[in-house]
Design a protein around this nucleic acid. Structure first.
Ligand code: MN
Ligand code: MN
Ligand code: MN
Ligand code: MN
Lengths: 226, 226
DNA sequence: CATAATTTTTAGGCTTGCCTAAAAATATTT
DNA sequence: AAATATTTTTAGGCAAGCCTAAAAATTATG
């Protein structure tokens, strides 16, 4: 417990957390391999090491799962990642599509005093620039309870954009272009059954069509019927 | 040129710079070994690699020296180190004795946009919390021309503290205790030949004795005769 | 200047975190 | 339930960055 972990080990814990978040399934070797851009054999190697350190439970051929200790560490890394992203956007004038790669580096900086100081300096933000919740010092994550995917909304409703999937650079850039940001309000006008694309009106902005794929990667909160 | 360097390689370049700063001597393997807390044989290994990459010039048994390219990189790492230290003290409420270890990690973060943004955010500071000059974007270092060691001052002069050696934690803590900071003015009252300690009066504060060793690690600027 | 002391390099080895290729286990089809 | 396909593990290897012990070069000393 409380041993220093390598960047690699931290990244494994974080990705295991992300892959199992929401589900209660174990994480497969191949899924990890894809997310970490490594070969399955490398994953197996590392899982053995992390199991040895009691940070994951791992049964050959059956996938892995974080232990309580492993999850605690993973959440703190995610806390750091999201606080640094918030810092970059709020203080250093980064765009939301520019922050992730730098935060991938910053999340490994080892200093509790720094991260708690940063949290205070930023005013204890609850969400990062992509709308993802920032875990608190104790590791508590306040998920937005009423969040649904834009692709799941019913027509004739008014919704507010509360999160976007940060994984795709090109999505973030596209949303910048069409001026769809966190806080933006959308009227859901139509859904086309052929490709499940939807027509929306940005309140105070243009009307436009969004593909199913785009809509699936935007999180919204229902406001009202139109 | 412009290849990505490992943390280790960056640390070697930085220490070679520090060890040769001021002097025009080559840096010896043993000197590096001591500063980097590694064995001489490890240093030899790395010098071969850095020479291969044209970042140092290295002749067996004759020590090493940074190339122009190597020096450019070293200076940028020092720029990052000192900007981060300034950030920690000015924005995150760190004490000057707490910043170095964290800055050792932060100096390896790879993002020109971040470091230039940080520089702007901090208001383009010229000196770090220990009074060391912060290289600018182009690598120019504005050394304080009139700086001398407190140990070299003449009695009956009034001086201002402009820098302290950051290498010793215990020195920094001691200076905190006696309330000797950057900007503090000192009257040089006496010098005892036996141990070369000096008696000083902190303007607006107490009178006290400083050992030669302490005085050598404090940089001051002459203001006037008393 | 020859011998001793010091510094530096070489030789060989270890761990971490990857890799490829082949073998073994598991899942899917027919 | 075989046969086939997919997933996962094992075996063996490689580069980075460190180590110890021994050899070689340099420097200091009588
Ligand atoms: Mn991110
Ligand atoms: Mn994010
Ligand atoms: Mn420092
Ligand atoms: Mn400093």
């Amino acid at each position: 417990m409380n041993e220093i972990l390598s960047h690699s080990e931290e990244n494994y814990l974080k990705e295991i957390f992300h892959l199992s978040e929401g589900t209660n399934q174990k994480v497969s070797t191949n899924a990890l391999a894809e997310r970490l851009n490594a070969k399955a054999s490398s994953i197996t190697d590392m899982l053995k090491k992390l199991a040895e350190k009691k940070l994951v439970s791992y049964i050959k051929y059956k996938g892995c799962e974080l232990t309580d200790e492993g999850e605690k560490i993973a959440v703190q890394i995610i806390r750091k990642h999201r606080l640094w992203e918030t810092f970059l956007v709020n203080k250093i004038e980064f765009g939301w599509e520019e922050v992730h790669d730098v935060a991938e580096q910053l999340e490994h900086i080892q200093s509790i005093k720094l991260i708690d100081g940063l949290d205070k300096f930023l005013g204890y933000p609850k969400f990062d620039p992509h709308g993802d919740p920032i875990p608190d010092k104790e590791g508590k994550i306040s998920y937005r309870k009423s969040k649904i995917q834009l692709s799941e909304t019913v027509i004739n409703s008014l919704v507010e954009v509360v999160s976007v999937n940060e994984d795709s650079l090109s999505l973030l850039k596209y949303l910048d272009e069409i001026e769809l940001n966190l806080g933006t309000e959308l009227k859901i006008l139509e859904r086309y059954t052929f490709d499940e694309s939807i027509k929306v009106k940005i309140v105070g902005g243009q009307e436009l069509n969004l593909s199913k794929k785009v809509a699936e990667n935007i999180g919204v909160r229902f406001i009202s019927e139109i």
